[in-house]
Amino acid sequence: MELGLIAVGAGLAVGLSAAATGYAQARIGAAAMGAVAEKPELIGRAILLVAIPETLVILGFAVAAMIILLLGGQ
């Protein structure tokens, strides 16, 4: 397969999942910071909640790595 398309595919896998993560983090982060403003002791949980959607981009990275490793070598 053409190398360029493989790169585009890998880029899309990471890029789209990063956008989704960003969207989710923006929503969660705003709410979490509101909660922290009221109760500063919730900062630990706020970090946890904000960090949860990052799994999306990590999975995107895994898919991109698989695309490169499995298709890039052919």
Partner: peptide, 9 residues
Amino acid sequence: ILSYLRLAA
């Protein structure tokens, strides 16, 4: 477990 891929990323 897959989430630990962030160590590499």
